[in-house]
């Protein structure tokens, strides 16, 4: 998914910031989840403190058993499992969003950290950069 050599440029003077990518949209209906994931993967090359938050319909991005053959879109859900290989291991899921949609951790295709609303709020507040799609 890397598209140009400068994407790999990590010479940023050693600054490490907390980046949180906030996902609030379901996959496939719009492109935000897929293109959001592309930024997350690129960010891994910059050696920042990267996390992802899944709130509201964003939790549907992690649902097991996605099969996109019949809609002829790329099933990008396996990419979430590959994030670990990029040292992106902080996947925060809001408990209230899961529950409101009748989902549990067992429905998700990757290991996540479930936070309640107060914990998620605190986590968001401490970030340097929040990028939402």
């Amino acid at each position: 998914m890397f598209t140009s050599s400068e994407d790999m440029d990590t010479d940023e003077g050693g600054v490490i910031k907390q980046f949180m990518f906030v996902n609030r949209k379901a996959p496939y209906g719009t492109i935000y989840a897929l293109e959001g994931l592309e930024v997350v993967l690129i960010s891994a090359a910059f050696e920042q403190d990267v996390s992802m938050a899944f709130i509201d319909d964003g939790v549907y991005e992690l649902k097991k058993a996605q099969d996109t053959k019949a809609i002829e879109q790329k099933n990008f859900s396996p990419t979430y499992r590959a994030l670990e290989g990029y040292d992106i291991e902080k996947l925060y899921v809001e408990k209230e969003s899961l529950e409101a949609r009748g989902l549990t951790e067992a429905d998700l295709l990757v290991d996540v950290i479930v936070l309640d609303r107060a914990e998620m709020a605190a986590k968001m507040a401490e970030q340097d950069v929040l990028i939402s799609f």
Partner: peptide, 12 residues
């Protein structure tokens, strides 16, 4: 340019 320019903007 590449997506790296967005991440770099976040850093800078």
């Amino acid at each position: 340019s590449g997506l790296g320019q967005l991440v770099e903007a976040g850093i800078q």
